[in-house]
Structures are given as structure tokens and as C-alpha cells.
Amino acid sequence: MTIAMIGATGLVGGWLWPLLERRGALLVLGRRPSGAAREKLGPMEEWPALLKGERIDVGISTLGSTRKSAGSWAAFEAVDRHAVVAFAKACRKAGARQFLLVSSSGADFGSRNDYLRLKGEVEQAVTALGFERVDVLRPGLLLGERAERRTAEGLAQAAAPLLNLLLRGGLERYAAIEAETVARAMAALAGRPGTGLFVHHNREIRALA
């Protein structure tokens, strides 16, 4: 199984790429080194070209930013929409039958919230590319240590244990979850048989991990 991945230096990706190297031949695309045995580096705009000549079975994106860290909505959209969809297209062109994507709890192309609407639209765009199987993971707030400081996210992580006690039943999908757990679920899903769109919320993610 040959796997191509973007987002390997992020919160989920940092946990995921070592797990994937045990599953198959992994190629990481990124802007800076991740530590993976095989990677190709360059600007996001060049990532699709870096896949030319490769034969891919599974494409994986754990790439994600925030409007604040990106600096503007346009810069955020360049990462979370354009880079992800362009990579997915390149994976499909390289023969990938499966694509895995980290999205967000509450993602909905019809949402009034710009962030959640964008996430939902990206899910739609990836699903429309013709993969045999698409796995969308919609975790709640991701818990873990990032290389970059996100003040608001840090405060939310600190409050997560108390909030998780309140988020039960149908609200469980919005609870905080460890990034390592999401990574282990994605590693378990890579290469799975079956066709169609599979959406995984916190409960399913924990079961897979």
C-alpha cells in the first residue's frame, strides 16, 4: 500500500505519519521536514506537481489552520480549501482509491458559520472526485501540544475536561478528543475495503483507535 499525506507536521499529522510508515510506503508532502523517511518539500502550490510519476493507493490530509494563524480569510482558505482539494485531485490522478480527510465537528456546507461551511464544502469537493472510498473524520476540539501557540485553543483545551462532562449523548461529537486518538483511527482506516462516503465522529473515532 502506497500512501501520500499532507499535514504531517501538524497536531494529528505528527502522531499519524509514524503509524503509517508501519502500514505501507509513505510519501509526505510538506513545506518543512516532518521526520518521515520519504518526503518531498515545496510550497503548497507545488504539491500536486510533486506527485507526478507516483502511484498512490491512499491519500490522506490532516492539514488545517485557523483564520488567525493564517493572517486572513484568503490565506486560511488557501490552506484549508485550495491546498487540500488540489492535493486530493492529484492523489486521484495518481490512482488513489481511498482518501482520508480531517474535517471538523459541525461541518456543514449549508452552515451560516464561515468556518463550518468551508469545511463542509471541502468534504463535498473531495467526495465528488470519484474515489472509491472517502473517510471524513469530524473530531471535536483537538487536544495535544502544537508547535505553534494558539492562545484561544489553549484556553479551550484547559477547559475541555469540564466541558466534556457536559457534552453527552448527541452532543458527544462536539467534545474534545486527543489528537493521538484521531491519528490512530486514521491509521486503522487507511487501506480499508468498501465503497462510499464514511463520516466518523468522536464515538466512531475512539472505537477505531
Rank of each mutant, 00 (worst) to 15 (best):
I3C: 01
G7E: 05
E21R: 01
R23C: 11
A25M: 09
L29Q: 03
G30S: 09
G30I: 08
R31P: 08
R38V: 10
P43Q: 07
M44V: 03
E45F: 03
L50D: 06
L50H: 08
E54V: 07
T62M: 03
L63W: 06
S65F: 07
T66E: 10
G71Q: 03
A74G: 05
A75K: 13
A75V: 06
A78R: 13
A78I: 04
V79F: 10
R81K: 13
V84F: 11
K89S: 12
C91K: 11
K93F: 05
A96C: 12
F99M: 14
L101G: 06
V102G: 12
V102D: 09
G110A: 13
G110M: 06
N113L: 14
E123I: 04
G130L: 05
G130K: 07
F131G: 09
D135R: 09
R138C: 09
L142I: 06
R146L: 01
A147Y: 02
E148H: 03
T151L: 13
G154Q: 13
A158Y: 09
A159C: 02
L162Q: 03
L163T: 00
N164F: 03
L166A: 14
L167Y: 02
G170Q: 09
R173V: 11
Y174M: 05
I177W: 08
A179D: 10
A179S: 15
A188W: 12
G191D: 10
T195Q: 11
V199T: 15
H201F: 12
N202C: 10
E204A: 15
R206D: 00
